[in-house]
């Protein structure tokens, strides 16, 4: 059994690396697009400084739409878009496209609900000293939600690991892909177990790291 593991190690290495790429890109896009979308969902809410029902409704519907599509279907649905964007539909980079699309609304909702935890009075006090909306977002809302933003990233990362395994089924690469190819198609239990253990360790590690950082930045 050990021999088999050593034999598979180079491939496992590549798969692990691919998983990291997929999850990493997904997280990055979640941060770059999902975070602003989440903040926008929050500040367009009733009673807040950019209160805007139309914007909030449109944004909310789009977010819900994407979130309600099962990932495996989103994956297939986005194949033409992926092809257009990166010129291929297989491999880790291609899989990252649909992972990113899924990660944006997922993280946006987490950001929105984290921001809702802020006492409205704190935002009001900032308005009362004459701060601009932009300064309030940058200096009050973001720092105040930091612990929530970080644990939200943790949750998103772990979900993306799960999604990336699905992406593997249609040739996306990564640990999931490896598990399917050997474990499912060739009944190779050793590879199957090894990949499962690697995934468990990865998830545990991310959870631990996320919790640790969230706790360190929490001043409440």
């Amino acid at each position: 059994m050990l021999d088999r593991i050593i034999e598979i190690l180079p491939e496992l290495n590549v798969a692990f690396y691919e998983t990291l790429i997929m999850v990493g890109i997904g997280l990055l896009v979640a941060l770059i697009i999902g975070l602003p979308v989440g903040i926008l969902l929050f500040v367009t809410e009733r009673g807040l400084f950019w209160q805007n029902r139309v914007a909030k409704t449109i944004l909310g519907v789009i977010v819900n739409l994407i979130r309600s599509i099962p990932f495996i279907i989103l994956l297939v649905f986005l194949l033409p878009f992926t092809d257009f964007l990166v010129g291929t539909t297989t491999g880790a980079i291609a899989a990252s496209v649909s992972l990113s699309v899924a990660a944006i609304p997922f993280y946006a909702r987490i950001v929105e609900s984290a921001a809702r935890e802020i006492d409205k009075g704190v935002i009001e006090a900032a308005i009362a000293v004459g701060a601009s909306p932009w300064l309030i977002i940058k200096d009050i809302i973001l720092p105040e939600t930091k612990p929530g933003l970080i644990s939200g990233l943790t949750i998103t990362a772990i979900s993306l690991i799960g999604y990336s395994a699905m992406a593997g089924t249609i040739g996306g690469g990564g640990i999931g892909d490896l598990a399917i190819r050997y474990g499912y198609y060739r009944y190779d239990d050793t590879v199957m177990f090894t990949t499962v253990i690697v995934l468990i360790v990865l998830v545990q590690f991310i959870q631990y790291l996320g919790d640790f950082i969230a706790k360190t930045v929490n001043k409440r």
Binding site: D119, V122, A128, V129, P143, E144, K146, K219, R220
Partner: peptide, 13 residues
């Protein structure tokens, strides 16, 4: 200036 019953300080600052 304005002050409130609930103080409303930014907890992360």
């Amino acid at each position: 200036g304005m002050i409130f019953q609930g103080f409303y300080l930014a907890s992360a600052k």
